[in-house]
Amino acid sequence: MTDILRLSGVQVRIAGSHILQGIDFAVSAGGVTAVLGRNGVGKTTTLKAILGLVPSTGTIEFDGARIDGVPTHRIVRSGVGYVPEDREVFASLTVEENLELAEVPGLDADYDTVHELFPELLQRRKQRAGTLSGGQQQMVALARVLLGPAKLLLVDEPTKGLAPKLVTEVGDVLARVAQRTTVLLVEQSLPLVRRIADTAIVIDTGRVVHVSDAASLLADESLVNSLLGVAGANVDVTPQRTRAGGSGT
């Protein structure tokens, strides 16, 4: 299987902190690749580095072309979709406007898929996104990247703060999306990872420390414990947060 994404020696320093210290991994085309790790090890920063949202060194190749140093909007136009941690919907805009922003001028937006996956958004299209529930905002964030012809989706903690039922629904959506698009998923819910991920990449202190198929990693409790600091693969390792806002790095 060909690699759609390849990172070599990617380093990120922010405000004097050496957050990514040489990330190396490749993502095969198709399916879900999960990025795992304790809180604050650099998972979110890895996604942001791929997208050019933070300055980085090293090499990043997407679909056979180097994208390190390329402006974010061009990376996105080349086929990378991004669902950020905490959704980051535009609160003052309506659902409809949030989706309009994601349309690529000159290309037909795939509203059929969006309405099929998220029929509720059709009913709430005139509602301001800031007034939606967390689950509904997640639908908007996912719908935005599904409108365009993305070849790779970077999805950052899509189940963060959601009720268990919604976690299952988001997992179902991601599984369906992964049938047509490669998904690179940062996720703390190991049950979800077990259910939908093919490959697992574990990051610790800014480096990749483990790569294997997700099922074999999560079947090995001692390995999970040593790499992720949790007792088993059936637990949700989402850290307790006392206030809104991202904790990812």
Binding site: P71, T72, H73, R74, V76, R77, Y82, P84, V104, R144
Partner: peptide
């Protein structure tokens, strides 16, 4: 986030 939606 505007940039992350592919807008220059």
């Amino acid at each position: 986030m505007v940039q992350a939606l592919g807008i220059d």
